[in-house]
């Protein structure tokens, strides 16, 4: 497995990434990419390299977009990624930290370590797990769940942000994920004022792990129906939809409230959405922290 990194940045170039990876060789050659290789592309080169993207997508199994500047063209990156095969990754926003995040990602894939929640957590202070099948219970569940957790060493706004994040994750799991036998979404266009209730076996699971440094939130639905096209259409949306059903900006709120957002989809079986928030005393540090997005398909 070879690592190829294309960037114009000298400060955050291939030498720096090689150092972070423990003195591994990092190449800047996109003509000889093997199917198992990593291809890491600086978003600032997207326009310049657009003619090569069809080739990249076919050749590189692990395609990562990284932004080495704070000018983070996420919409464009998602648009390109949505047309490529998963897994796909976007890392950016904070130039000083983004290569560290890329190195972590490369290492985790080298070690064949999946990115699901059960593989990410160790021993944590709080461990909350709750099943939810009735959408009328969402607000109450969130209040009760967050009431059990102490968010010390963290800016006070964190509870409001988490409350919003979990609300959107659970609405997606109960209204957007369920499909019928024909694979059609059952409640996509249902008015959110009319609540839904799923069979107990199909109830969504909410888990929160609160460590000294990070808060992990995971919501699992038992349908595995979300697609990268849906994510691409909604993740950076800032206009509400007037169509029946959801408002269309929930995913964007989830992304904006997370430092790391991971989708692990087992088509027709389940989707796990994991949001990771690094804990800071200062809200400003929360805003400045590197953001990343990862999408995996489990066959």
């Amino acid at each position: 497995m070879k690592i190829n990194y294309l960037t114009k940045s000298e400060e955050l170039g291939s030498d720096k990434l090689g150092n972070l990876l423990g003195d591994q060789e990092v190449y800047s050659d996109f003509n000889n990419i093997g199917s198992e290789d990593f291809l890491i592309v600086d978003i600032s080169l997207l326009e310049e390299l657009k003619d090569y993207f069809e080739l990249f997508k076919k050749k590189a199994k692990n395609l990562v977009f990284v932004s080495t500047s704070n000018d983070y063209n996420i919409k464009y990156a998602f648009n390109i990624l949505s047309r490529s095969a998963p897994p796909y990754h976007i890392v950016g926003l904070n130039s000083e930290e983004c290569l560290t995040k890329v190195a972590e990602l490369v290492n985790s894939i080298f070690k064949n370590k999946p990115m699901g929640l059960s593989d990410m957590i160790g021993v944590y202070k709080d461990n909350v797990e709750v099943k939810i099948q009735d959408s009328s219970k969402i607000s109450e569940t969130i209040r009760e769940t967050l009431g059990q957790i102490e968010f010390d060493n963290c800016f006070s706004q964190i509870k409001d942000n988490l409350s919003q994040l979990i609300n959107e994750l659970l609405y997606n799991a109960l209204f957007n994920a369920p499909t019928d036998d024909a694979g059609e979404q059952q409640f996509l266009e249902q008015d959110r004022k009319d609540h839904v209730s799923l069979d107990a076996a199909k109830a969504a699971t909410l888990k929160i792990f609160n460590s000294e440094e990070r808060i992990f939130t995971s919501v699992v639905d038992h349908y595995g129906s979300i697609t990268k096209e849906v994510i691409d259409a909604h993740i950076s949306k800032n206009e509400v939809s007037d169509k029946a059903g959801g408002a269309g900006i929930g995913l964007s709120l989830i992304y904006n409230n997370s430092h790391e957002l991971i989708f692990v989809v087992e088509p027709g079986v389940q989707t796990e959405v994991i949001s990771v928030i690094n804990k800071y005393k200062r809200f400003k540090q929360n805003m400045q922290h590197v953001r990343s997005f990862h999408f995996f398909i489990k066959e």
Partner: peptide
């Protein structure tokens, strides 16, 4: 609290 449907 405000959620996406509330925003709409």
């Amino acid at each position: 609290m405000i959620n996406s449907c509330g925003v709409r």
